[in-house]
Design a protein around this nucleic acid. Structure first.
Lengths: 110, 110
DNA sequence: TTGACTTTCAACCGATTAGTTGAAAAGAGG
DNA sequence: CCTCTTTTCAACTAATCGGTTGAAAGTCAA
């Protein structure tokens, strides 16, 4: 329930529609209407998705005149990526250590 | 309704307790009791979390004698990492293109 | 076989989610 | 001003989630 930022980013990207939005926004900013076009859902539903992405920091909305285009904040994925890399590397180091141990056992057997 | 594997991985890691489990499992396999110890929750709740991680492919359980330790499947993060890197790179390339355009405008102005 | 431990199944609860519809603000432009 | 578009707010639904308790299986070893 704390809903820390990292959890929010993971949760935001757990939805295929929102991942698709991010994929499209990575190519170019888009208005909400442009974004909504491919999905068979109400405009309000799209606004809801955008709010989830926005509160996770994945996306921002331009200030100023309407319509205010949606912008992908690529840097918002950094902390998530760090998390993933950290534990992938951790597991890898553990694997290396296992190799080392097996090698040592091999030597002892000689 | 998503149920695709990638969504499941994102969703599995959206929960802080499950991320903590993965963090600890990246150091060493653990039994369910060992895993459960730090969290003030029932053993059944821990099994539920493990099932979520397992169905996302993030974790596996040893076959054979009880208790069957839990193992972190680091490779399960690959597809998620690819997704993230892809759209980070996409956004970066777009940024490079913008730089290029600005540079061209600068030249024209000379 | 008995008994302890591990694992799963099921029902329930409160909160959240993804969607809907309807209505109201808020802006931009004629 | 009026109107059209954009954006937000509110209420409602069905489904899912994270947790609980209670009970049932499975598994191992004395």
């Amino acid at each position: 329930m704390p809903a820390d930022t990292l959890s929010k980013v993971f949760a935001a990207l757990a939805d295929p529609t929102r991942r698709d939005m991010v994929a499209r926004l990575s190519v170019a900013d888009a208005t909400v209407n442009q974004l909504a076009e491919p999905y068979g859902m109400s405009l309000q539903a799209v606004y809801k998705h955008l709010r989830v992405l926005e509160e996770a920091g994945v996306v921002s909305r331009a200030t100023g005149p309407q319509p205010r285009p949606v912008h992908f904040e690529a840097g918002s994925l950094d902390r998530m990526d760090e998390w993933i890399e950290r534990y992938r590397r951790q597991a890898d180091e553990r694997y290396q250590r296992l190799d080392r141990v097996l090698a040592d056992m091999d030597e002892e057997q000689t």
